[in-house]
């Protein structure tokens, strides 16, 4: 049997700039060099010998990747090395992207949040990660940087299959951009797990509702799931069910059923697929209801 061992031997490089990082990974095979962000997952992967890199490229010293910046267009830009703690401390996130604040607060405890980064939570490509579904409901764009240049893409297209991203071996997730929140909009992320804290997500449901100017009709709904499938995903068919509709329990049932049929959760010793579907059904409705209430209560305050 294998057990949690001491770390494997590796060479450590600590670049100070993004350009240095890009040049360090410009030609590398994936297992040869490993990017170390916060390390809360990566250190354990190495201790379990799931990854045995020859070289570890530590990103903690790359100051230019650690920022939360409000954009001129009203959006928000977040550096990939921003810790969950920094996300929680950013007033812009608490005030304007409450779902992101709410989600970060549900991950780990103070120790882990002081180390774990937004970039690591996304790039780890785990289906149970909590930030990606929340960010997907915010329509996040991500920036991939390499020595060849940079490209932007929607986060929802980032995870092609379990444990993988579409980033090339020479690319690094460097920045996350959130568009300006629409009027009459709100979202929530419901993380289901056994204890009150520290647990891995059994099912996570992110919902974001944008209402028409009447404050009642749903103009847009975005739904994204952790552990609803082999990757975090947007349930776009379910979203469509509510678009242009007035909010009501009947249509909510239809949305939840659609979300269930778009999901393909796994059965494992942690939970059965049937139970995960029950959670998806219940929590989808609950998340939409809460988001709708919050968005519609903004009417008259604007």
């Amino acid at each position: 049997m294998t057990y949690l061992r001491r770390l494997p031997k590796f060479e450590y490089v600590g670049p100070r700039t993004l350009t240095e990082v890009c040049s360090l990974i410009s030609g590398g095979a994936p297992d040869d060099a490993m990017l170390l962000a916060g390390g809360t997952d990566a250190i354990l992967q190495m201790r379990r010998r799931e990854r045995v890199p020859r070289r570890v490229i530590g990103l903690k010293g790359v100051a230019e990747l650690d920022f939360v910046r409000e954009q001129a267009d009203g959006g928000l830009s977040i550096g990939a090395m921003t810790t969950l703690h920094s996300l929680l401390s950013a007033p812009a996130i608490r005030q304007r992207y409450a779902i992101l604040h709410e989600t970060a607060a549900q991950i780990g405890g103070p120790e882990l949040r002081n180390i774990a980064t937004i970039g690591g939570n996304i790039a780890g490509a785990l289906p149970c990660a909590d930030l990606p579904p929340a960010l997907m409901t915010l329509d996040a764009q991500i920036k991939l940087s390499s020595h060849r240049g940079e490209r932007w893409m929607p986060l929802r297209d980032f995870f092609p299959e379990f444990g993988r991203t579409v980033a090339q071996d020479d690319e690094l997730l460097s920045e996350i951009k959130l568009p300006r929140p629409a009027p009459y909009s709100a979202g929530t992320y419901l993380k289901f797990h056994d204890r009150q804290s520290m647990d891995m997500t059994v099912v996570g449901v992110g919902a974001f509702v944008v209402l028409d100017d009447d404050g009642r009709t749903v103009r847009e709904l975005r739904l994204a799931y952790a552990n609803g499938a082999p990757t975090v995903f947007r349930a776009m068919k379910a979203e469509a069910v509510l678009c242009g509709q007035l909010f009501g329990e009947k249509v909510l049932d239809a949305v939840a059923e659609a979300a269930c049929s778009e999901s393909s959760p796994r059965t494992s010793w942690r939970a059965n697929a049937g139970y995960r579907l029950s959670l998806i059904r219940a929590l989808t409705k609950r998340a939409i209801r809460r988001s709708w209430q919050s968005a519609s209560s903004q009417k008259g305050t604007k």
Binding site: M1, Y3, L4, D194, R195, Q196, S197, M198, D199, M200, W269, R270
Partner: peptide, 22 residues
Amino acid sequence: IRIDGKVMNPSLRDYKMPQATD
């Protein structure tokens, strides 16, 4: 949890003891 004699959750992440918030 053991499946075919193998412990599936030999870690304090997955062997879930009460936390102060529970």
